[in-house]
Design a protein around this nucleic acid. Structure first.
Lengths: 384, 384
DNA sequence: TTGAAAGCGCTAACAC
DNA sequence: GTGTTAGCGCTTTCAA
C-alpha cells in the first residue's frame, strides 16, 4: 500500500503517470502528486502544492483556526503577539486567502459583472477600464462578458454572472435585446444593476448616460452655422435609446433653425462596418444629395468619409461630416473628424461608483439617473 | 421580539431602514429583508431573495440533496423520473447553481485569469476576445487584469488571481517586469501559466508568439526592394523579447542586402504616444535623415507619420514607413500604412487552447512553444 | 483573549 | 437508486 507523503492516508492514492522513470502517485485528499523516495537519486517530490490554509497556520502555531482568522482580519480582541505570530507564519507559508471560501460563507463575492456588446473598438474598453479602476480600488473583482450583440449570448452571460454570485452588474445592452427577463433575474435575486449607454427603459434601475440629445443638437447646429443646409443623419439601431436621443437632437436643431426635416435624409445603421458603408452609399446616391451628415458615432462617420473619398467628394467643401464619441481614429484621419466628445472613462467610473454605492447600502434608495456632459470638438471635416 | 418571517428565528434580526413608512427588518440567517404585515395595507415583504439551493429543491420534493445533485449532473444511476422531477422543480424555483460552492469542494474554479499590460488599443482586446471564445466554449470563465504596464500592479494582479484560485493563467508581461517571483508563485501552487506576446524567458512554460523575426525581415526587405537605402528602426522597450526579435530581423535584412547597420538609425521607444513622437523627431532631426523607417508597431508608425506630415515630408516618396500588427487605423490613415499582420485573435485562441490542455492533463508534459505566422500587407506608405 | 462548533452550498464516498 | 455523512476553507456565534 502506498501512503501519501503528506497525510499518510492510503485510501485516496491513485497512480498518475511516470515521471523521470518513476511511478508517480496522486493523493486525492491532499491534492498532491508525489513519487516515492529512494529508487533514483535526488528527486524532489513533484508536489502539485496544496495551498496553505488557515488550518495549516493554526497547526503550525498550535492555536485554533478561529484565532488565525481573527488575527488575519484585525478582528476585535486579539493578543498582539498572537496576531504578529500568525501574520509572520502566514508570510512564511505563503498563505493566500481562499476568496471562494470567503465568498461562500459571507454570501458576498466582492465581484461585479460587466456585460457589454463588444470590446474591440475603443469605446467599451475605455468604459470598462474606468469601471475597473473604481471597482479595484474598492476591493472588487470584475468579470467582463461580451454579448457580441447577440441576445442569446447576453442571456448566457447573465446566467454566468448569476452563477458566480456577483454582487452587482453593469450592463450595456445588445442592439437586439427586446426581452429583459435575464436582467430582471438580477433584481429578483436582489443583485443591483446599473445600465450605461444602452439602457433598458423597462427597468427602474440606476443608469448612466451622456447627454446625447444636447450633443447631437450642438453638432447639427454647428453644421448649420457653417452654412450646410441639406443635412442628413445616419442613426443607430432603432432599439437603442441613444438612437432616439441623437435623432431628436438632430431634428430639433433643424427645426430651431427653420430647416425642413426630410425623411429621406435619415437612415438607420446597425453599426456594423458593412451597413455603415451601405448607409453612406444610400445617402450619397440620393438625387438631392446631402451637403452634410451627422453620424451616430465615429466608426460610422469614418466609413462615410471613406466612401465619399472614393467618390472624390471633397470633405468638407462638398460634404460636411460630424461624428460622435471622439474615437482616436477621428483625429488621425484626414480630414480630421469633427465629433462630439463623451467622457468615456467617466461613464465607466460613474456607473461603477453608483453600483458600489447601491451594493453598500443594500439595494435601497431611489435609482440614480446620471447624464454626463458632451463637448463638441471641431476639426476639419465640418468647416467650409 | 421580532421573528423572521422565513426561519422564525429571533436572534439574527436587525432593523434596517424604513420603507413606505414601516420599519424594515433584516434576518441575517436567511439574508432577507422584510416588514411586518398588518400596519399598512397591501405591502409585499421586501425580500432580498434567498437564492434557491439544492436543499430547497430537495425539501420541495422530499428527497435528499445528494439525489438532487446527482440529478442535476446526469451523475450515474438515477431514476429518470426523479431526475425529471428535479429538473422541473429547479426550473420552477429558478435554481442557479452556486459556482463558488462547487469550486470550493472541487478545488477547481473553472476560471482562468489573463494579465495584459492594457486593453485599449485593438491588440490586447482582440487577443482577449480570442482567448475568451475558447475558454467559454470549454466552460471556463475569464478574469481579466490590466497591469497598466506597472510591475507593482502586475504583482497585485497575480495575487488576485491566486486568491481567486484560477485554474490557469495567460500572461503578457509589463515592459518593466524584471523580477518574476509573482509568476513563479503560480508554478509553486501548481497553476499552469502560458505566456503570449511578451514572454518571461526565465520560466520554462508554454508560450505563444508570432514570428517577429521573420515579419521584421520581410518588412525591411520590402523597403530595400522598393529602393530605400537608409532605413531606420524605431524599436520597443529593451526588456521585451519582441523588441530583440524585430530588431534582429531588421539587422539581418540589412546585412543580407549588404547595407550597413548604423547605430544612430536605431532608437528605442517605450511605446507611449509621447515617446513615439520623441523618437520620430530624433530620427527626422538626424543630419543624414533616414529615407525609410521600420517601426516596432502600428501606433508608433502612426505617430511617426503624423510628425513627418507636420514637417511636410512626403510619404512614401521622401520617407517610407512600415509598421507592425495591422491596427485598424493603418488602413484608414493616409497614406495607408504598410504593416506586418499578425493573427491577433489566434494568439489568444492558441494560448487559451494550450492552457486548457495543460489544465486538463494536470500540468505535465513538455511546454509548447508556438510561433504564429506573420504576413506583410503592402499599402501606400512604403512604395515609391 | 481564545477555542469549539455550526454552517455557507455543494460533491462524493460509502452504505443500504 | 437513494440517503447519510464528511468535508472543501472560511467566518462567526457562543461558551469558556
Amino acid at each position: 500500500m502506498i501512503k501519501c507523503i503528506r497525510c499518510s492516508h492510503v485510501h485516496a492514492i491513485t497512480k498518475s503517470g511516470i515521471v523521470r522513470g518513476k511511478q508517480r502517485y496522486y493523493c486525492k485528499d491532499c491534492n498532491i502528486y508525489f513519487t516515492l523516495p529512494g529508487e533514483t537519486e535526488a528527486e524532489i517530490p513533484q508536489l502539485k502544492k496544496h495551498m496553505t490554509t488557515i488550518v495549516d497556520i493554526a497547526k503550525a502555531l498550535n492555536i485554533s483556526k478561529s484565532t488565525v482568522s481573527r488575527a488575519l482580519h484585525e478582528h476585535g480582541d486579539i493578543n498582539p503577539q498572537t496576531r504578529a505570530a500568525v501574520l509572520e507564519m502566514a508570510r512564511q507559508l505563503d498563505y493566500q486567502p481562499n476568496l471562494l471560501a470567503q465568498s461562500l460563507v459571507k454570501s458576498k463575492s466582492n465581484t461585479i459583472g460587466i456585460i457589454v456588446p463588444e470590446f474591440l473598438t475603443y469605446f467599451f474598453p475605455t468604459i470598462i477600464m474606468g469601471a475597473q479602476q473604481v471597482a479595484e480600488q474598492a476591493g472588487y473583482n470584475v468579470i467582463i462578458c461580451q454579448s457580441q450583440e447577440s441576445y442569446k449570448t447576453e442571456v448566457a452571460n447573465a446566467n454566468v454572472l448569476l452563477a458566480n454570485r456577483v454582487d452587482g452588474v453593469l450592463i450595456s445592452m445588445t442592439k437586439e435585446t427586446k426581452k429583459f427577463d435575464h436582467f430582471k433575474a438580477f433584481e429578483r435575486h436582489g443583485i443591483p444593476v446599473v445600465f450605461f449607454n444602452r439602457i433598458c427603459d423597462e427597468m427602474d434601475t440606476s443608469r448612466v448616460l451622456v447627454n446625447d440629445y444636447e450633443g447631437a443638437l450642438k453638432a447639427v447646429e454647428h453644421l448649420i452655422k457653417n452654412g450646410y443646409r441639406n443635412i442628413a443623419h445616419i442613426g443607430g439601431p432603432p432599439a437603442l435609446l441613444i438612437t432616439h436621443n441623437r435623432l431628436n437632437g438632430y431634428r430639433d436643431a433643424l427645426e430651431k433653425h427653420k430647416l425642413p426635416f426630410k425623411k429621406e435624409l435619415v437612415v438607420h445603421c446597425d453599426l456594423s462596418k458593412k451597413d455603415a458603408i451601405h448607409c453612406a452609399e444610400k445617402l450619397l446616391n440620393l438625387k438631392h444629395k446631402p451637403d452634410a451628415v451627422f453620424c451616430v458615432n465615429d466608426p460610422v462617420a469614418i466609413q462615410l468619409m471613406l466612401v465619399a473619398k472614393k467618390r472624390k467628394i471633397d470633405i468638407p467643401s462638398e460634404l460636411g461630416i460630424v461624428g460622435f464619441s471622439n474615437d482616436p481614429i477621428s483625429e488621425v484621419i484626414e480630414p480630421a473628424l469633427t465629433t462630439v466628445q463623451q467622457p468615456v472613462a467617466d461613464i465607466g467610473r460613474s456607473a461603477a461608483g453608483i453600483l458600489l454605492e447601491v451594493i453598500k447600502k443594500g439595494g435601497d434608495g431611489v435609482p440614480v439617473h446620471q447624464s454626463l456632459k458632451t463637448t463638441l470638438i471641431v476639426r476639419e471635416s465640418s468647416g467650409r
